[in-house]
Write a protein that binds this DNA or RNA. Structure first.
Length: 918
DNA sequence: CAATTCACG
DNA sequence: GACGTACGTGAATTGA
């Protein structure tokens, strides 16, 4: 029976455009999307040779913007920005590409490609054909109601069936339209029902069957926000239902029979590929002459073969390991990955190592499978100590580059086994330096984005829940497929990123700031910081008593018990039961009870709630300190080291800052006396002390330099108090009030000011706030110029840069939603300053170890980084020698790459604990 | 899992 | 004229 392939061309054009770099051909025409689209068609050619491959094929495109859906709903697809200007000229080229493959191209005014696909599918089924829809569009999944229809997602090399619909949306294709109608679609601006997303929509449809039935049942549901939304937005749901429905009776522009595949003639395809200089594809077309073709393609874009999981080798004898090691030495680079028993690198045990040398040339070396129980059945593997001894010189070989994805983790695990890793590249950091702000940097996401490959899911290897296995319990075949794939994918990513770094101007920040930091951070995490559990336990117990007493008093005032920790219940008590005025409800209908609100009540001498609110504020502080710090930190102490080992993310903050998790040691309390006591639990070993060094006002100093503000620069040069100086400039006199206001305004400037935001903070009217902003701009010329230039640049290029060339992308700067856009604008104003500060302290960190070592100070350990502060532990006797070195390294960290016009101030404190060092 | 709150720079 | 109103984070809790 004939098999019809219908290609959703329009869907692919956009996806290809967004995932490929902006390539141009030798004629200077943008061709990124065309290239992606062409390779997609190429992949389909492989299908021709399959037993149940296509006998008929056509590409379907959108023709016009206006369809019957716009008649139904004038907002349909209304939020779509116009196509990017370098994509527009590619639309006609995509038709050329289709013709080059001698494929029919179907488009019809007034109909979307989806409708044409639905109609052709119906017609083909009526004749008993089978149909494959080449797309990953969720709307088209509705068509898989017939067993003769399936989908092929060439971007991810996946075949999709009804089961995928069920997995993704909780219902079979028959009911998909109902679910889509309820959840809506922000991309097409299908409204759906407010507050209902895929999960809720699936649940409702599973229960009631149809949108209509759900809407009918709504009034009898138990009261909830969802019920209200269903009733309120019933019409929108009905409308959405019509919008997502595919029209399957469109008159067919060409008869099905005309789609019969005739083979693909060589000549037109060759001409097309030559015109654009798609050399890789041209080479594949014929093994004959490959005349050099000039292109501006990013180098390294050649398509890799798909991952062949069954081709990976499990290395279980020494001779094989020797061969891999020798091959890596000979080649000069190798991608590596470690498998372990857990996610915490400072506790997990090594289970195996994988290596990749070329795409599909990868292996897995099991080292700890079957556990350590000597009586248990263990699969055959190389003796762990022997294998590590063989790997050690390779990992330390200065002539062999080790490539990892989040190599910091592997460095810690391997370091605990006595193995150093150098030199190295890290693809997670490369991705961050190239694409911060555009997407995440996890391997699975990058593989999908850059390699059109979906990685084996870790969960599929080890299972989930109670039956989840440790990686060491996974059988070697499955372990090899998973582990070697990770190394393979890492290698493939590296081959793409390495040339991009240079091509896109990010080599500097990668080499001078981020890459050297990986090993430094690994060392800090492994070191950890000593925490005195006794101090924390004492605080926990003190807090418990105070919390219990406050609880009783608060319930006493209310006259009944309630959950103080529930903002909902607290709001009801304060604003409804006690009748306090001025409660503000947020969009979820709950009164806000945050600290601003409670302090407002506390400040009102006539409010009946003052007494309670003051106690609630105390209660809040104490419960926060207890649960987040004094209790949690005790549990985080590693029993093996007696220390707490945080994990820093190098890619967590868009601006280039680090972030800290498990536990977060960058938000240990300091602002209140009660909270500050927690810092006393961070202590030095006997004979040692804690030294804390922090940059003073680094962001304001950088703003003075970057925006070139003479008055601010002078103030810093003279060592003046910067907030006093600002107060003088703005208000003509310095007192506590004006200094406080000046400080607020200084920070507001760094964050991208709005008159309303400033008005709220200073408790003045927006007009008064605007007057202060105007005066600030007047007194500090340069600031408004900086803001305008930064925004112009960011809008034109899509990203901001720091003094060290770090890019942060802001795709939402072009959002049609004004709030979203304004938020991105403020972030873009802040990013160069916050990011430069991050660059500088990172450089200081990378230089700190060598500088101290040069002075013979080998026992000074850098333990923590808190954005503008570094915390060290060192022998008491080394303090006087270390102090000037730390001071100098931090103060000169920008040099020589960047010469600042303001000095960087560094303040140092020393004491037996972190608390005492401040 | 979302919303709220709050700890830090 | 409405919207929400300072940038960047991570963690705990409640409640659906």
């Amino acid at each position: 029976m004939p098999h019809l392939y219908l290609v959703d061309g329009s869907g692919y054009i956009f996806r290809a455009y967004h995932r490929l770099p902006p390539l141009t051909n030798k004629h200077g025409e943008p061709v990124g999307a065309v290239y992606g689209y062409t390779t997609m068609l190429w992949k389909l050619v492989d299908e021709l040779n399959k037993a149940d491959g296509p006998t008929h094929m056509a590409v379907v495109l959108d023709k016009s913007e206006h369809t019957f859906r716009n008649e139904l709903y004038d907002q349909y697809k209304a939020h779509r920005p116009p196509a990017p200007e370098d994509l527009v000229p590619q639309f006609p080229m995509i038709r050329d590409a289709t013709r080059a493959f001698s494929l029919p191209c179907i488009e019809e005014a007034g109909w979307e490609a989806d409708d044409l696909i639905a109609s052709y599918t119906k017609a083909a089924l009526a004749q008993g054909w089978s149909v494959t829809i080449v797309s990953s569009d969720k709307d088209l999944m509705q068509l898989m109601t017939d067993p003769s229809v399936d989908m092929l997602d060439t971007m991810n090399n996946r075949r999709l069936g009804p089961a995928d619909t069920e997995e993704k949306f909780g219902v079979l294709p028959e009911k998909l339209g109902e679910v889509l109608a309820l959840m809506g679609d922000s991309v097409d601006n299908v409204p759906g029902v407010k507050g209902i997303g895929p999960k809720t929509a699936a649940k409702l449809i599973q229960e009631f069957g149809t949108v209509e039935a759900v809407l009918e049942a709504a009034p009898s549901m138990k009261p909830s926000k969802m019920r209200d939304n269903l009733i309120e937005h019933a019409e929108m749901a009905r409308l959405s239902h019509k919008l997502v429905q595919l029209a399957s009776d469109v008159p067919l522009p060409e008869p099905l029979e005309d789609f019969a595949l005739q083979g693909i003639p060589d000549a037109p395809l060759r001409a097309f590929l030559e015109h654009h200089g798609f050399r890789t594809l041209l080479n594949r077309l014929s093994a004959v002459a490959d005349a050099p073709v000039e292109t501006h393609e990013t180098p390294g874009l050649e398509e890799d073969p798909p991952c062949n999981h069954d081709g990976y080798e499990t290395v279980i004898d020494e001779a094989a390991l020797d061969q891999w090691i020798e091959a890596a030495r000979h080649q000069g680079w190798v991608a590596i990955d470690t498998e372990t028993t857990g996610v915490d690198a400072t506790r997990a045990e090594l289970v195996g190592v994988s290596m990749a040398l070329q795409p599909n040339k990868a292996c897995y070396i099991p080292l700890g499978h079957g556990g350590t129980d000597m009586f248990a059945e263990r699969p055959v593997q190389i003796d762990r100590a022997v294998a590590l001894a063989k790997l050690k010189p390779l990992l330390a070989d200065p002539a062999v580059l080790k490539i990892g994805h989040n190599l910091k983790y592997d460095m810690i695990v391997l370091g605990r086994c006595g193995l150093d890793v150098a030199p190295y590249d890290d693809t997670i950091v490369m991705s961050f330096d190239l694409d911060a702000g555009l997407h995440g940097h996890g391997m699975d996401e990058l593989a999908a984005t850059h390699l059109s490959h979906s990685c084996i899911a870790y969960k599929d290897v080890v299972g989930t829940g109670k039956s989840q296995l440790g990686f060491g319990e996974v059988d070697l075949k499955a372990a090899t497929r998973y582990a070697a794939e990770d190394a393979d994918v890492t290698l493939r990513l590296w081959r793409r990123f390495k040339p991009r770094l240079a091509y896109e101007g990010s080599t500097r920040v990668y080499e001078m700031v981020d890459r050297p930091l990986v090993a430094v951070i690994a060392g800090m995490e492994r070191e950890g910081i000593k925490v005195d559990a006794g101090v924390l336990a004492k605080l926990s117990s003190d807090f418990s008593h105070q919390i219990a007493a406050l609880e009783e008093e608060i319930h006493g005032i209310a006259g009944f018990k309630f959950t103080i920790g529930s903002p909902k219940q607290l709001g009801d008590v304060l604003f409804d039961k006690m009748g306090i005025k001025g409660g503000r409800k947020g969009k979820s209908g709950v009164y806000s009870t945050d600290v601003n609100e409670l302090e407002r009540i506390a400040a009102d001498k006539d409010s009946p709630g003052r007494e309670m609110v003051v106690k609630v504020l105390d209660w809040r502080q104490l419960t926060k300190l207890k649960s987040t710090y004094t209790d949690a930190l005790q549990a985080q102490i590693n029993p093996a080291t007696g220390r707490v080992h945080t994990s820093y993310s190098l890619t967590g903050a868009q601006t280039g800052r680090l972030s800290s998790t498990d536990p977060n040691l960058q938000n240990i309390p300091i602002r209140t006396e009660t909270g500050r006591q927690i810092r006393d639990a961070f202590v030095a070993e006997p004979g040692n002390v804690i030294l804390s060094a922090d940059y003073s006002q680094i962001e304001l100093r950088l703003a003075a330099h970057i925006a070139d503000v003479p008055a601010l620069r002078e103030a810093f040069e003279q060592g003046e108090d910067i907030h006093n100086r600002t107060a003088m400039e703005l208000f003509g006199e310095v007192n506590r009030d004006t200094r406080g206001r000046a400080k607020t305004i200084n920070f507001a400037i760094l964050y991208g000011i709005s008159r309303w935001g400033l008005a709220g903070r200073l408790d003045v009217t927006p007009d008064e706030a605007q007057a202060m902003i105007n005066r600030y701009f007047e007194r500090f010329p340069g600031i408004n110029r900086y803001i305008a230039d930064t925004l112009n640049d960011a809008k034109a290029r899509g990203y901001t840069t720091t003094l060290f060339g770090r890019k942060t992308h802001f795709p939402r700067l072009k959002a049609s939603n004004p709030n979203e856009r304004a938020g991105s604008e403020r972030a873009a104003i802040n990013a160069p300053i916050q990011g430069t500060s991050a660059d500088i302290i990172k450089r200081a960190m990378a230089r700190m170890g060598p500088a101290l070592a040069e002075a013979g100070l080998h026992n000074v350990k850098m333990l923590l980084q808190v954005h503008d502060e570094l915390v060290f532990e060192l022998p008491e006797g080394d303090v006087e020698a270390a102090r000037p070195i730390i001071q100098r390294v931090m103060a000169t960290a920008a040099e020589p790459a960047v010469k600042l016009t303001v000095p960087l101030g560094v303040e140092i404190g020393v004491g037996p604990s972190w608390g005492a060092a401040h």
